[in-house]
Design a protein around this nucleic acid. Structure first.
Lengths: 200, 200
DNA sequence: TCTTGGTTTGACCAGATGGTCAAAAGGACG
DNA sequence: CGTCCTTTTGACCATCTGGTCAAACCAAGA
């Protein structure tokens, strides 16, 4: 029996979550302050705490929303599909996530860097189970000779690393590339890399 | 005419830097406190401030020490050597850095995530110059047909991403792999990946 | 218009945080 | 032992930080 959120509630909650994402993704949980977030959201601190009961609550809401979207692309890897195409498509989806949701990627990176205190159990259970399942699929493809015999776990790690790098290390990438756009070259490079790696 | 550091100075400065590395690499600059660092170093806060004039000073000393070691492996990439062997050796050196100095890797990651306020100019100048130089070398190898025609910048990014991932996302990697050792499989995987990618 | 419930705010609080300082304690060396 | 310089500490401070609360403000329906 939860009452429907009012127009103002929706607007302010969205503003707070966006502001929280800005701040938390840059400074991590401990390094972020409610004043910063309230400022970024255009609200006073007590007003912010009217919508979320604590700093923790904002962070938790963001992590919740993140984790679903984060595991989704791997979930979609289809054991019945064409192996190389499936893996390339997964890499492409992850790269698109980095491009379109870099703040979410950095929020996740910050959480992991701090030792993942709030999501370690999710990593240990949900994430591990999902990766185990998909690794078995990839191992099956390798055993059947449909792709080159690669360690499926490190293959998945490599996709995470290569795609998230462009969001997490954005500042460094741009410092090196100057005014050239990162993501076009990245897409071409990743396509070639995985095509050559996976061809038996 | 700087006086030579005493035995006690050396011991305490080393303890402070190690403690600072522990804390800063986990929580970032803003999220770390002097009390935490003093605790980890086994000193009182005023005593800590007797050796380093401020929180900033500890952090700056760590970044200084880091950056030299960080650029070194790429510097060693030899235009006269065998192309594939040189690039593989670079990847191997970076992977060894991740394995042996994970705290340094995470310190760097934290700094970049926060927008690299303290090292952006170094990235823009020193790092960019070094990468430009080595990218030209790799481009030359590609043009000469000695390696496959890959974008040298994204090749270098990929080495950074793939190696640092094991240090920066250590918690996640271990959560997925369970008790299996990450670095042995990683070395084999990276070797195969770059061998297949670079073979013309 | 009045009422009612959601919304916003200023003032406030306890504890944390970066940093200071004078004084005490320790070590090395004649 | 006495001296001098280094090292350590307890007490302290201003500011920041997460969070509370009562009161004021506003929007919308009766």
């Amino acid at each position: 029996m939860t009452k429907p959120a009012t127009r103002i509630q929706k607007r302010n909650q969205a503003a707070i979550l966006s502001a929280g994402l800005d701040i938390f993704s840059q400074y991590g949980f401990r390094g972020s302050t409610l004043d910063q977030i309230a400022d970024a959201a255009g609200l006073s601190k007590p007003n912010l705490l009217y919508y979320f009961s604590s700093k923790e609550a904002i962070h938790a809401a963001l992590l919740d929303r993140l984790l679903a979207d984060w595991l989704d692309p791997l979930q979609a890897l289809d054991a019945q599909g064409d192996p190389v195409r499936e893996i390339l498509a997964y890499a492409k989806r992850k790269l698109a996530l980095s491009k379109d949701y870099p703040r979410e990627s950095r929020l996740f990176a910050n959480e992991i860097l701090q030792g993942a205190p709030r999501i370690e159990s999710i990593l240990r259970h949900d994430l591990k189970a999902l990766v185990d399942e998909k690794a078995a699929v990839i191992q099956g493809w390798a055993d059947a000779g449909k792709i080159a015999p690669v360690d499926p776990y490190h293959l998945i790690f490599s996709i995470w690393a290569l795609t998230q790098h462009y969001a997490d290390f954005d500042v460094q990438v741009r410092a090196v590339l100057g005014d050239r756009a990162p993501y076009d070259g990245a897409a071409v490079f990743l396509d070639m890399l995985y095509r050559k790696l996976l061809t038996p």
